[in-house]
Design a protein around this nucleic acid. Structure first.
Lengths: 218, 218
DNA sequence: CGTACAATTGAGGTACTTCAACTTCCGTGG
DNA sequence: CCACGGAAGTTGAAGTACCTCAATTGTACG
């Protein structure tokens, strides 16, 4: 595991950090006026962009060992909400950026992390702007499989920490459309569900087909 | 101007760079298998994510002095296309990241740049996922005003280098819907257009209203 | 075991898309 | 300078994918 904040890195910047425990459903109490960097020690969270109280977009789902860059409030408000109980390490972005200049290797890893987040966000933009409901669900499931999936023979088991509403807010659909798409995938035997949160991906190739990925892959 | 690659920075990394000239409409011939960092010396470009030949999302519009991080090809292909004739400075991302560790200040500015791109991408995700057509157009115009707008009394003049199709591909609408929304804004005297590319924003407060920004701003 | 909430399913509405025709713009050549 | 032609943009009519509203079923927790 190539953690951004390994023991030696933390020795230098640990004093800048603030440890937080946020219980499931709660908002991380972050500074709204300054960008913040949050290291998720344990748990799972969603970063939401809020345009109105009843209209929000999940900008990213994040899990243990992820680093989340939470923007300051601008035209819209950003909140980091815990999906399950979380342990967080919180840094003011500007302070951290300046402090880690004594350790360029850590800075480079921060850059890599930011680049990864940017790439995921761009994939999300493509999904939101140009994909159908069934493609969106397939993309979502495959992306979750890559991050928190557990191989189970030819299948992949997902234990999703987020609700159907969260999923919908993440891929720009309503809770009902998400539910209908799950039902279609079940009918076609691409997935099986168990309870509210467990999803078994039965046919990854077929899911990739539905995701609308490029045909001519390297 | 706080350029990322000022004279002293370029002295150290200039040898890594490749200069390119791309004429309007052309693709920058980048390495598809590795992430690339492009500094736009002059011109304007669009970064597109392609799901199919007839289905692409503009991930970002970029202008002179911008740094664009172009992902390697994954599930989808990314292309940097020139909107007008461009002069570019191209770096392999990984090589550059390692090389600039001798100059943490440059690394920190790269991180800031990446953070800005991430923030813009997240705003885009919110627009694509949760905004109506009229809100999207307003958001687009305001975002362009902030980047390439020229104050003209109380109004702001835009000389858009991209077509209606590009705009649509950027905010997830069809060319026809974009056109209809422009017509509505004209009827309501929020904008005036002149030729294909010039847009005069006549009423910024009203545009912000239509953009669906948060009411209770600090 | 019962309650509260999450998820599913159905019926009807709507915002945007698709398809098609027309108009404007603007570079080119007469 | 003006006329031409092709591309870009605009406008209209019809279709559809997704949303909204409403009722039912399922799930997890006390």
């Amino acid at each position: 595991m190539n953690r951004v904040f390994d023991r030696s890195a933390l020795r230098g910047i640990g004093t800048l950090a603030q440890t937080m425990h946020v219980s499931a459903g709660g908002d991380a109490p972050l500074d709204r006026d300054n960008a913040t960097l949050v290291y998720i020690v344990a748990g799972a969270a969603k970063l939401i962009a809020r345009a109105a109280i009843d209209r929000e977009q999940v900008a990213a789902f994040n899990f243990a060992d992820d680093i989340v860059m939470v923007p300051a409030q601008g035209a819209h408000a950003y909140l980091l909400q815990a999906l399950v109980d979380c342990e967080l390490l919180v840094f003011p972005y500007a302070t951290l950026r300046d402090a880690v200049q004594v350790d360029p290797a850590v800075l480079a890893r921060l850059l890599d992390n930011c680049d990864n987040a940017l790439n995921r966000c761009r994939e999300k933009a493509l999904v939101l702007g140009r994909k159908t409901a069934s493609e969106r669900i397939a993309c979502f499931l495959l992306s979750m499989a890559a991050r928190i999936g557990v191989a189970s023979g030819a299948a992949v088991l997902l234990d999703l920490p987020m609700s159907r509403r969260d999923i919908g807010d993440g891929i720009g659909l309503t809770i009902e459309t998400v539910s209908r798409q799950f039902s279609l995938l079940r009918e076609d035997h691409l997935i099986a569900t168990q309870g509210r949160s467990k999803v078994l991906l039965l046919d990854l190739p077929a899911l990739k087909q539905r995701a609308g990925y490029l045909k001519n892959r390297a």
